[in-house]
């Protein structure tokens, strides 16, 4: 393929391919990455600093122009934005710790000799990962629906009449769907980390008579702290993006508005053709996501001495 001369020249330069060849390997990924990741972000940023004005009175034609931080001021003045943010903050503060705690307990139990049929439990927990979020939400909405749900039937049988779609409960019904979808995934990440701990690390503690419980909390959990932090960051990001679970529950419950989460608000605003405002909301969500996830990383990295 290569002629003698260029082959020799390459070796003289210390080996390795030419710049053109390297570019040919990188471009097929970086070009779409640029076009479909970076450029949209830049375009949204640019749009978020534009406003629509009209020439003359109400009947003048519309044009867009630079508007400074006008769109962002509008985002912060919008009570619906504050409301949606408060809602998912509450959601995240409860759902993320509960889900990760259950995932951690499962991972630790699967890592002890206490259980039989470990393969089955692993598969059962990870199976929801194969179910699309929307389909999971549709499945659960059948289990919440008073007409169809066998769960409601069973609870009625013991004298409890639950309302999974009421104003005070529907947020937690959505939280349950997220928990169902992601517990097993997080559990497997933690479990993989546990499996890579060399057993010698806790063999000595075992000989000294430490209980499984003590080994788990004092030795194993601190070692897999990076994985727990990683799953927390992914969960925070996921919570801020919440869309499909509440959107599906909205189809059967009047207690979810079209602006229930920040992303639903952004979608509703974009559907109203107010692209500049939608862009400003999207950018604000992204900035909050970034600040929270990096803030959390910084905070825990310091405390865990990583």
């Amino acid at each position: 393929m290569t002629d003698e001369k260029s082959g020799r020249r390459r070796r003289l330069r210390g080996g390795g391919p030419r710049a053109g060849t390297i570019a040919a390997f990188l471009t097929p990924f970086y070009l779409p990455f640029l076009l479909f990741y970076l450029v949209p972000v830049g375009y949204a940023l640019w749009q978020s600093f534009r406003v629509v004005r009209r020439t003359g009175g109400q009947f003048g034609h519309a044009y867009t122009t630079f508007g400074g931080f006008d769109q962002y001021l509008q985002v912060f003045r919008n009570a619906e934005f504050g409301g949606s943010l408060g809602r998912i903050a509450l959601f995240g503060i409860v759902q993320v710790p509960v889900m990760l705690f259950v995932a951690l307990i499962m991972a630790l139990l699967l890592d002890t000799p206490l259980l039989r049929a470990k393969g089955f439990f692993r598969i059962a927990a990870f199976m929801p990962y194969a179910v699309p979020g929307v389909i999971a939400a549709i499945m659960w909405s059948f289990l919440y629906s008073p007409q169809l749900s066998p769960v409601v039937d069973l609870l009625n049988g013991i004298g409890v009449s639950p309302d999974f779609l009421g104003p005070g409960t529907v947020l937690w019904s959505a939280a349950n769907i997220s928990t169902w979808c992601w517990t097993g995934y997080n559990m497997l990440i933690m479990f993989s980390a546990l499996q890579s701990i060399p057993p010698e690390l806790y063999e000595a503690a075992k000989i000294d008579g430490a209980s499984n419980w003590a080994i788990a909390w004092r030795i194993k959990v601190p070692i897999i702290a990076p994985s727990i932090i990683l799953t927390t960051v992914f969960s925070i990001i996921g919570t801020l993006q919440l869309y499909s679970e509440p959107a599906v529950l909205r189809q059967i419950s009047s207690n979810i508005s079209s602006t229930y989460t920040p992303n639903m608000l952004a979608y509703a605003v974009a559907s109203g053709n107010n692209y500049q405002q939608a862009a400003a909301i999207s950018v604000t969500i992204a900035v909050i996501t970034f600040v929270l996830s990096f803030g959390f990383l910084k905070l825990t990295a310091k405390r865990a001495g990583l």
């Binding site: 259980l115 039989r116 439990f121 199976m127 179910v131």
Partner: peptide, 24 residues
């Protein structure tokens, strides 16, 4: 005791994860 407790907890969780699919 801890073996029974661990198994019971895992069985409950497995039911939770499999129930919606079984219903479907």
């Amino acid at each position: 005791i801890s073996r029974t407790a661990a198994m019971s907890l895992m069985v409950l969780l497995a039911i939770y994860f499999l129930l919606p699919v079984y219903f479907l």
